[in-house]
Design a protein around this nucleic acid. Structure first.
Lengths: 167, 167
DNA sequence: CACTATGTTCAAAACGTATTGAACGCATTG
DNA sequence: CAATGCGTTCAATACGTTTTGAACATAGTG
């Protein structure tokens, strides 16, 4: 691989590392993906530890994570006992799976909370009396939150679809 | 404020704290916003430190951040020297501004990187010779990345619009 | 104009999390 | 079947970031 290509790859590795780090995924994940994405030949764990100066353990874990998100694919090379990896470039799918994995659970949790609150604030049955203004305030806030939640969900779903629709 | 309402607020505070923490913003920001959002009366810095058991310094910084995102609004109460805050509930706008603030800069940085790479890989002018397959590989990858970047931008813009369009 | 109440700043500390590296297990090979 | 190569695990560590709290600045008050 010529020097210029290496330099370009190096810069992408750096940037991707910063990106995944700032998103809370750790620097190594971004670095590894970028390195492989910009390597014409499949890369082994050893290649990674050597090129990126990271530990074998860290490389192993990051690689498995990336595999789970469909970002990397194992490649066997005959006569070689090492595992090699190459990058897929279905970026949309990869990002989707990664986000789902990271954000998904939290959404469900927050839904439960909303439902609990709605339940607890339900106006007393049949009571015609002027309702407690404090409870009324809480109800309005919870309702707004629910509305926001619904919309955010719709936007998320349709955005993801749009992003992935074209090959 | 009655006990039940307080309990509901407490749970939202907890959840919001976890949320903003996991997004890399720190626990306090989410806690403060949730607390004020679910408080019928405007809250002072003192109220916050007392209710949430956080330091005055932390509260001060978080409150200013939230103000910048348009999440909180200062309220003056006559005859009281404290600053009081109340929450806006234009959640869409708030989230937008917060995301812009956090993510915005990174996008610009990565654009520069893409342009540099495209420039560096531009095929030699007028050369009809079979091009270097290695450079060709790099070019394809950069091109895919560019495409993804463009689409992500479009999705982002239109999603944000959709989310905000309805009052 | 001293005194008090309030908000802000910032260095230090507490905290959580990513990363390392040694120990391990498993498979392959001669 | 011992020796080697490879990937994985996990406790210890290093690191970055959030949070604290004391010192400070500022504005109001008697």
């Amino acid at each position: 691989m010529n020097a210029e290509a290496q330099e370009i790859r190096r810069r992408f590795v750096e940037a991707a590392g910063h990106l995944t780090q700032s998103l809370g995924g750790g620097r190594v994940i971004g670095q590894i993906f970028a390195h492989i994405y910009f390597s014409p030949e499949p890369q082994s764990l050893d290649d990674l530890t050597r090129s990126l100066h990271i530990s074998k353990g860290g490389a192993s874990m990051a690689v498995r994570q990336l595999e789970q998100w469909g970002a990397l694919r194992r490649v066997w090379i005959r006569g070689d006992r090492k595992d090699y990896y190459e990058a897929l470039d279905t970026l949309g799918y990869i990002v989707r799976r990664a986000f789902m994995d990271v954000i998904g659970r939290k959404m469900e949790t927050s839904d439960g909370l909303l439902e609990d609150a709605e339940q607890a604030l339900k106006p007393a049955k049949g009571g015609r009396a002027a309702s407690d203004p404090e409870a009324e305030f809480m109800r309005r806030r919870v309702a707004r939150l629910r509305l926001f939640r619904t919309r955010a969900q719709r936007v998320w779903d349709s955005s993801i679809l749009k992003l992935l629709l074209r090959k």
